[in-house]
Structures are given as C-alpha cells and as structure tokens.
Amino acid sequence: MKINREILTTAGILIIIAVTPLIFHENSYTMHLLIMSMIWAVAATAWDLLLGYGGIFNLAQVGFFAIGAYATGMASIHLGISPWMGLLLGAVASGLAGVLIGLPCLRLKGIYVALMTLAFFEVIGPLIVVGINLGTGGKAGLFPIPPFRLGSYVFNTDELLPWYYLCLILLAICLFITYKLIHSMLGLSFTALRDSEPFAQSLGINRFKSALVVTAIAAAMTGLIGAFYAHYVVVISPRMLGLDMFLFLLIMIIFGGAARFPGPVIGAFVITFLDDMLRPLDSYRLLAFGALMVIMIMLLPNGLMGLVAKINIPLFGKRDTEAEMLNPDIPKTY
C-alpha cells in the first residue's frame, strides 16, 4: 500500500480517536458523543460508497442500519445468541437485505433507484410495527438488548471505555474495507459507471453485478454498526427510522465531502458535536442544519475534504490531481 493523503488522513483520525479518552474518559457525556460519532462515521462512510463513489442513489441505508439493529436485538433477546454473534448476524442480515432490495431496484436506473429505495425505506417502519407478533416489539420498541461480555466482564453503562474501543475497532475495520474497495478493480468499475454508464458498459462492465456487490457491502457495514448501536443503546424502536438520522447522515457526507474518503468520518464528528452544541436552539437547530446543507452544496460541493485537497501541505507532497485522489493505488505506469 502506497502512503498517500487518504491513508495519512485516516490514520491521523484513528490515532486521535484512540488517544482522546486520555483526556475525556472521565467525562461520560463526551465519551458518549464520541461513540455516537464513530457509529455515524461508519454509516456515513458506507452510504458515501454508494452515493459518492458509485453514483447509486440508494436512500434505504438507514433501513439497513435498522435491520442490523433489529436482527441482533431480536436474536439476542428471543434466541439468546451472544451479542458478538449478533454483530455478525446484523451484518449478514443487512447484506442479504441489500441483495434482496438490490435485485429489483438496481435493474432500474438512476433516479428510479432513489425512488424505489426511498419507498422501501418508508415501508420498514410499518413492517416493524405490524410484525409485533414476530417479536419486533412493535411501536414501543425492543428492550432490553443484552450487552457484550468478555470472559466474566460485562459491558455496562458506567464504563464507556470498553464500548469506545470496541467501536473504534469496528470503525477501523470498516474504513480499511472501504479504502481497499475504493482502490480495487470493483471500485474502478463503479466509479466508471458513475462517470459514464454507457462508456463503462461498452467496455465490458456489468452494471447490475457491480452495483449489487457494492450495495451488499455497504448494507453489511451499515448493518454491522447498526447491531453495535442496538447493544450500546439497549433499546431500539421504529423511531430510528425517522427523518433525523436520514438527513443527518446526508449532511455528514456533504459536509465531509462526498466521494472524498475519509471525508464523511470528519463530517460525522463535526456534525455530531455541532448538533449537540446547538441543542439549546431547539427546532431552530434543524432549520439551521437544513440551511447549512443547502449552503454546503451550493458553495462547497466537495465538502471539507475537497477544501483540504486544494491546500498545499508540504507534508503531503505535491497537490493531488482529482484523478490521483481517486485511485492512487492503481499504478500510473508499469
């Protein structure tokens, strides 16, 4: 792996996250916000893989988050499986759901994908509510979702440090997978499809296959972190399928920079803390976020990372061209 701007930024972020508890571990509220930031960071990064890199307007990502959460929640409450298995189950269940949604949706094009997935997303909530007999907990929600155990140690709400580092590990794994994916031939294929679908197809790329695989991977990552979330917050309900999370994740992606890995991670941290600071503003807070979203798109379409890329930092070597930023690992000469 060649060292480049993306790796340096990502490593920097992970190291900062890893050492932050040295300062804040006493402050459980800040710790909680940091954990939530990491959770959103994974969800936003996975979503950006589709929206930013793949140009696939899949609007059902929050649904996959919920599927992951409910999979582990229901299995660990009703079937008593271990939460560790639950993480895996969440990822697998969401990945499968991604394939199932993808099969009909991805045959369609562009805007139709957005509509179909949005419609699907809207249906998950009602399904959870009507599925109360299947053990979804219905409208009231599902609780208490048991915590992780490590030997005789039980994760608990008094001690956030173990949650924190577990979440960091999951974040690191997901970022690694994402980075590898973007720079693989699969990544090349979906970026090619995004740039020009007809040209990509005329050169032998199978649009459906490429889109389906990336949808499944993004869904699985989202499901994984959704499962973690379920154990962390103990109670989940269909309310997580509301607009808030949906819009917040999008704002994180836009703010950090779509298709500017690891922009959405930065976006997740900034927006989570900003949201918390603006809490006293009450409903003006979301109004402000709406305005921020529009302004960012109008004025800074490539987000924070787009801005960073324009700045010459000697440490990072010469300024990357767009193309080099996209696929630095693919050799430019043999």
Binding site: T191, G204, A323, T333
Partner: peptide, 21 residues
C-alpha cells in the same frame, strides 16, 4: 466523446483492458 472524467487516460484504458474482451 464519453470518458471517465475523474480518471487519467491510463485508468480509462485500464477499464477497457481489465473488464472488456
């Protein structure tokens, strides 16, 4: 002309070479 605008010439050709034929 249709091309992959976010890529280099090399990468454009790489797509054809890797996926096509």
């Amino acid at each position: 002309p249709l091309l992959f605008d976010s890529m280099t010439i090399y990468q454009n050709i790489l797509v054809g070479s890797h996926f096509g034929g």
